[in-house]
Amino acid sequence: MAKIVVEVMLKPEILDPQGKAVAAALPRLGFTFAQSVRQGKRFEIEVEGEPTPAQLAEVSRAAETLLANPVIETFVVKVEK
């Protein structure tokens, strides 16, 4: 069983109020390392056996159609063991 991971992030030019709220909360808790925080989504998709290039292409199509909104978001597809 392999895991295909799709990570979706808001495009850099799109305001991310949730990320900003997290960035503002961190120093209140004494964590002072963050210059900025962007929040995104991660989808873990389990498939039988090693993912084939065709399968990965299909996942990319699904990401473009449903998992991400290309108007405001970008995504990456990768394989994890």
Binding site: I14, L15, P17, Q18, A21, N69, V71, I72
Partner: peptide
């Protein structure tokens, strides 16, 4: 309508959260 691409753009979270 935006998600359907009948209208352009997208609606995102309110700036003030």
């Amino acid at each position: 309508l935006c998600e359907s691409h009948l209208l352009p753009g997208a609606l995102t979270q309110n700036q003030g959260l």
